[in-house]
Design a protein around this nucleic acid. Structure first.
Lengths: 338, 338
DNA sequence: CCTGGCACTCACTGTGCGCGAGTGCCAGCC
DNA sequence: GGCTGGCACTCGCGCACAGTGAGTGCCAGG
């Protein structure tokens, strides 16, 4: 176990390094922080911290920088979550109010988060698996062609064309629409399959084929769209620390375009509260020199999706966590209202 | 007017520079191309080309690189559009087939285009202004709350909540739905306002308020969504020529995030066929060292939106133009089928 | 009008050197 | 035992400097 003062030294190193982006030495540390001890003592502490793997030197005769393990300790034990100031809160609310639809909410959230944290923002669309059905609509496009429209409680809309095996009358259509809605409205998407299982039996022989087709399209939609979508913004912020890793920026951009990677990353964070993953804790290679701060958000008490930011491991964790948490809360409120 | 050989020299310079990314000198030129003349002659030609502003030297005693004006001449007079090879065509078709909805078509197109050209791809969603109405749906959410769903012929779906001034019965709802659809289905979005203008008069006094509210929401949607959305991909490709402008990559990324800029850029290209804008021909400052190749695409003969790529002015114009044109054609086919 | 020759320019590369921040270690002090 | 001041050492960084070579402009001759 590290002594109180050594932890304090680690905290000082992290803070200084995040601020200056340069390896921090013992002398500078004692000058910028009132640790009450001399540089020589700090050097001894640094030696211990280095032995334990919390800090490292880029090369001999240079200052120290925190390792992933060092950041981990800092986040877990040394740093709190910096709350937003009232003006910031107002700015967030103003920015998010006035969104017209779900796409707009997500788009605004991404921009806001990127701006607040000056990093890359990622916002997942509310997942269908945890959503409930608000309405299912069936429209006749042609004698044997229907359009299926699915509306979720979070305002998401999905539609599919359905080619029917046989013409389908208006009355049958109205019947199916009514039966379908009475069964699934307000229910969770995951429950839908068993709720509609026996629906074809309620119809005349000639219509059963079409009903089955519609149902299987509906179920397909549920499966396909369960793989969530997400929106990314603020990639220009990557260039802010590009001088740090001018070559590492490409794998990061590539990873960001591989939405699968990010979705997996967000999905892995089991804790519905805040999750911070640092450097090599992230399995994907391209993101080994980045950290991801994510948190769940939702319209009710329940989280329906995640949002977060991707930045260099050398980031302002307290500030970033504060911004992410605050934005998630307000987005939740907005979704609950609509 | 430049002589035939001088044009040939310019073409050789552009081709070599695009290939090697390095200023090209007179000796190297004569070695790599069979121009039939000596380096000294080429030097004289180069001096003329430089005087006319088609090429420039980064510094004295270095080779020449084409200027924006040089690329312009190359594109207009010297370069054709390189057609895709049959295997490439098949690959395009395979990649685009199997898209399940409009979002998917756009997403696949972006990825495909980015991969083919190894540059940044931009695809505009089919614009509402040139689309026609496939269906308008009204759903009752609560006694005084409706959901308006708008479906376009290109498969785009927009929805809005409508808060009614007074409760609205199911029969009135069905009536409004029927009247609305009979008037606007198959019509262009731009014609909708005058088509529904007198609709409230057909209803009872008590319902007129609601009908008006619905209509104004519909019209609002048309206006709001006329500002088109777009999808961007392949930003990781920016790093391929980042060594060229490691500092210029940031304004480019910023410009790409400002979708307004890109939309304006795409909108400016009046020619429904291929448009190439080179370097300083682009008004936006951040894109001054890039070129944009764009083309309209559409489900029928008519272009409903644009797609294209953003890359360095030093790009393979014939190849890029070929890829952009081919992709636009196939996307048009896909849209026509759905 | 083209060509070979020639002197000139200048970015680029590698080397050597001094500077200084930062370290590790040690002896002494509390 | 822990803290401190002192001191020698390391080594990355920046700078000056010279050598190299690709490329140029110009000119006289074919």
């Amino acid at each position: 176990m590290l002594s109180e003062r050594r932890l304090e030294v680690l905290r000082a190193i992290v803070q200084d390094y995040v601020g200056t982006e340069e390896p921090v030495g013992s002398k500078a540390l004692t000058e910028r922080h009132s640790l009450g001890v001399s540089p020589a003592t700090v050097r001894n502490d640094m030696a211990v911290l280095e032995e334990e793997g919390y800090i490292a030197q880029p090369h001999t005769s240079a200052g120290r920088i925190p390792t992933d393990k060092g950041y981990r300790l800092f986040v877990d034990k040394l740093a709190g979550v910096k709350p937003m100031t009232p003006p910031e809160r107002r700015a967030i609310q103003n920015f998010l109010d006035g969104a017209v639809d779900l796409d707009d909410v997500v788009a605004r959230t991404v921009r806001l988060l990127a701006q607040l944290t000056r990093q890359v923002a990622v916002v997942q669309y509310p997942s269908l698996t945890r959503s409930t059905v608000r309405h299912v609509e069936l429209l006749s496009m042609a004698p044997a062609r229907l359009m299926l429209v699915l509306i979720t409680d979070t305002g998401r809309v999905e539609q599919r064309m359905v080619d029917c095996p046989a013409p389908f009358g208006e009355t049958s259509l109205a019947d199916l629409r009514a039966r379908l809605n009475s069964r699934v409205v307000g229910r969770r998407f995951t429950d839908v399959p068993q709720l509609v299982q026996d629906l074809p039996e309620a119809f005349e022989n000639e219509d059963r084929g079409t009903v089955s087709t519609v149902l299987s399209t509906l179920l397909e939609t549920l499966v396909e769209e369960t793989e969530e979508r997400l929106m990314i913004g603020g990639t220009a912020n990557l260039t802010r620390f590009a001088h740090d890793f001018p070559l590492t920026i490409r794998p990061v951009l590539e990873a960001l375009e591989e939405q699968v990677v990010l979705l997996k990353l967000l999905g892995e964070a089991k804790d519905p509260g805040m999750t911070v993953r640092i450097g090599h804790e992230i399995a994907h290679e391209g993101l080994n020199s980045t950290s991801v701060v994510s948190v769940g958000y939702g319209s009710g008490g329940e989280a329906v999706a995640k949002l977060g930011v991707v930045g260099p491991t050398r980031m302002d964790y307290p500030g970033t966590m504060g911004a992410v948490r605050a934005v998630a809360r307000y987005v939740g409120q907005i979704l609950a209202e609509s």
